[in-house]
Design a binder for these strands. Structure first.
Lengths: 332, 332
DNA sequence: ACCTGGCACTTAAAAAAAAGAAGTGCTAAT
DNA sequence: ATTAGCACTTCTTTTTTTTAAGTGCCAGGT
C-alpha cells in the first residue's frame, strides 16, 4: 500500500462514515489529485487486500470490517473534543459527592448525547466488595427493612415480614452481632461465615436463632444475586443511525439491548480501549462496540459505546480516553 | 341498532383484533345467518353511526375509535383468566415480604408477558410518606452514605464527602437529633422543619452547625426531587404488534416510551379501570391505554397497560380487575 | 318493509416492464 | 504508472399491467 492508497482508504472510511453511501471514484478526484481511473485501480487493489467492498458489482466502495480495523489501527487521527464537552466531563468527574460509578454514568450520558450512540456501563459483580454494615429498620410490628452497605458505599435493601414468633428486638440484636463480627468480610463470603461463625454465637443468646439466621441468610442471598448493574444511556440513540431503516433491524437491535444477559457479555477487564467491529463482537454483527474497564478504589466495571460499524471512531476513542486518563491521574 | 347490528359490530371488532385486517361482508355470512348483501347494508349503517370505517372506498371495515368505545362499554364480555395465571398472581400478591408496589410491579410483569402489551407502573410522588429514620454510615475518613427510610419502607441513599472541618461524629450526632425530632414527619415538610426546628437545637450543641445542616438539607433535597418511579415491563412488547411494521411508527412509539415526562402523564387517581382509546389518551394516538390507580396503606400509584387500539380489551380489563379486587379485599 | 342475487365499479397490492442513474472494468494511448 | 473513453452491470425509480378483495346499489322475491 502506497501513500495514496492509504489516503484513499482513510478518505473512503471517513466519507462513508459521513454520508452513509458507497463512495465512487469520481467524487474523490479533487481530493486525491489523480484521475478517476487511477482511483478505480487503487480501489480494486484495496479490495484485493480485503479493506474495501462493493455492495454490488457496479457500486461504489464501502469499507469492510478489515478496512475499519486497518483504519482504527493505522489511519485515524484522534479528534479534538470541544472545550464545552471537556468542561462538562470535568465538572462531573471532580464532584466528590458522586460515587465513581455514578460519575462514570453521567459522563457516558454526555458521550451518548453528543455522539448519538448508545452507552452502557456495567458495574462489576461486586464479589470483592466488603460488608460495611447491616442495619435493621423496623417499619411496623411485623415488617422490617434490612439495609446492607458495602465499603464502597453501595446500598441494597430488602423488605421482610418477621414471623410473630420472633421479636424484632432479637433480630436487631443479631444484626449487631453480625456487624461486630462480619464487618469487613467479602460479600461473597458472608453467607458461609453467617453459618459457621455467627450462628454458634447467636445460638447461645437467642432462642429462635434458627429462624433469625434463616432470615439473614435469605436477605444476603438476595443481595448477592440481585446485582444486575447494567446502566444504559441513550439506549435508543443508535436507532437514529440511518442503517436502522427497516423494522427487522430496528426490532433486532432493540431486543438485543433489552437482553440483559447478552449485554452483560460486553464486560471486559482489559485496561486498554478496545474496538470490536461487527463480527468481532459477540453482541451484534452490525455494530461496533468500543469498550474499556474502569477501576478506582473498590469501584470497577466496564464502560462501552455501541454504535454502527460506520462509527466516528476517533471521536469516541478520544472521549473514552479522556475519562480514563482523568481517573488514572486521580488514582495517584 | 338492532340485535344483528350489535352482533355485527362486536364480531367486526373481535375479528379485527384477531386478524388485523379489514373485515369483509362475505366472511361473516355463516356467523350471522344472512346474506353478504344484508351485512353490507348493516355495515354501511354502522358506518353512518361512526362505529365502523373503511381503509379505502372498496375495503372491508375496521372499527373506529367510537366503535371500540361502544364495544368496550356495551358489547365486550369479560374474559376468563386461566387458572395458571390466577395462581401466579395470587402467589405474588400474597407474599408478605414484598412491598405493595413491588407486588404490583411483578403482577404487571406477568400481565405484559401474557398479553404481549407494555405495562407501566407509576409510583405516586410520595408527598404523603413519612420519615421513618435517617442513618449515617461512615465509609471512610471523608465519605459517608446517608440513608433515608420512610414509613412505607422505601429507601433512598445519597453519598457525600464530609469537609475536613467537620468530624463525622458531629454528623452522626445531628442525625440522631433529627431522628428523635423528625421521625414521623411528612417527607415534604422535612426541609422546613430542619431549618426551623432542628437547626436551633443543633446550634447549641455543635460548632459547625451551619455546614452540617446544609449537608442534611442537600441530602433531603435530593431525595424529594429524585422520585422518578416509572417502572416498565415488556417495554418493547408493543412492537410485536403487527401495526408496528414501519420504522417511523416503531421509532415514534419508542421515543415516547423513553420520554419519562410524557409517560408520567399517564398517572391517574381514578379508582375505576379506565380505557383511553387512541385520541382519547395524551400519550399516543395510535395506542389504547387501560389504567387504574392502586392504593394500599401508604402506597399508591397508577398501573397501566399500553397496547394497540386493536387490543384484547376483555382480557386486560379482567386481569387488572383481578389485582384491584385482591388489593381491596386486603384493605379490610 | 326487509332481504338477497347479481354485477359494475373502486382501490390496493403485487408483478412486470421500462427508464434512468451511478459506477465499474478494461483497453488502448500517453 | 496514469488516464481517457466506452461498454456493461446493477440498483433505483417510475410506469404499466394484472389480480384480488370488497363495496354499492339495483331489481326482483318474500
Amino acid at each position: 500500500m502506497n501513500t495514496r492508497q492509504k489516503d484513499l482508504l482513510r478518505i473512503v472510511v471517513e466519507e462513508y462514515v459521513k454520508n452513509v453511501k458507497p463512495v465512487g471514484s469520481k467524487s474523490l478526484v479533487k481530493r486525491l489529485n489523480c484521475s478517476s481511473a487511477t482511483i478505480r485501480n487503487d480501489m480494486a487493489f484495496l479490495e484485493t487486500l480485503g479493506y474495501l467492498e462493493k455492495t454490488h458489482s457496479s457500486s461504489g466502495r464501502i469499507p469492510s470490517e478489515e478496512g475499519y480495523r486497518y483504519y482504527t489501527e493505522h489511519l485515524m487521527k484522534p479528534k479534538e473534543i470541544s472545550g464545552d464537552t471537556v468542561l462538562k466531563l470535568q465538572t462531573i468527574l471532580s464532584n466528590k459527592d458522586l460515587v465513581v460509578s455514578d460519575a462514570i454514568l453521567k459522563c457516558m450520558e454526555i458521550i451518548s448525547e453528543i455522539t448519538n450512540y448508545t452507552s452502557v456501563v456495567l458495574g462489576k459483580d461486586s464479589g470483592n466488595e466488603l460488608l460495611k454494615q447491616v442495619s435493621i429498620i423496623p417499619i411496623d410490628d411485623s415488617k422490617v427493612v434490612a439495609l446492607v452497605v458495602t465499603n464502597s458505599g453501595h446500598v441494597e435493601n430488602k423488605h421482610a415480614s418477621i414471623p410473630s414468633t420472633i421479636s424484632i428486638n432479637e433480630v436487631v440484636k443479631s444484626c449487631e452481632i453480625i456487624n461486630k463480627n462480619l464487618s469487613g468480610t467479602k460479600l461473597s463470603e458472608v453467607s458461609a461465615k453467617l453459618e459457621y461463625e455467627i450462628k454458634p454465637i447467636i445460638a447461645t443468646k437467642i432462642k429462635q436463632y434458627e429462624t433469625v439466621m434463616s432470615f439473614f441468610q435469605e436477605a444476603f442471598n438476595d443481595f448477592t444475586v440481585k446485582q444486575s448493574d447494567v446502566f444504559f444511556s441513550g439506549k435508543t440513540n443508535i436507532l437514529k443511525q440511518p442503517e436502522y431503516n427497516e423494522p427487522k433491524k430496528i426490532k433486532g437491535i432493540i431486543s438485543k439491548l433489552e437482553n440483559v444477559e447478552l449485554v452483560k457479555k460486553i464486560e471486559t477487564d482489559d485496561e486498554g480501549i478496545n474496538i470490536f467491529i461487527g463480527e468481532e463482537n459477540e453482541f451484534d454483527e452490525d455494530v461496533t462496540i468500543i469498550k474499556t474497564s474502569y477501576k478506582l478504589g473498590n469501584e470497577e466495571g466496564t464502560m462501552a459505546i455501541i454504535g454502527p460499524k460506520r462509527m466516528e471512531y476517533g471521536k469516541v476513542v478520544t472521549l473514552l480516553n479522556y475519562i480514563k486518563n482523568y481517573l488514572e491521574r486521580e488514582e495517584e
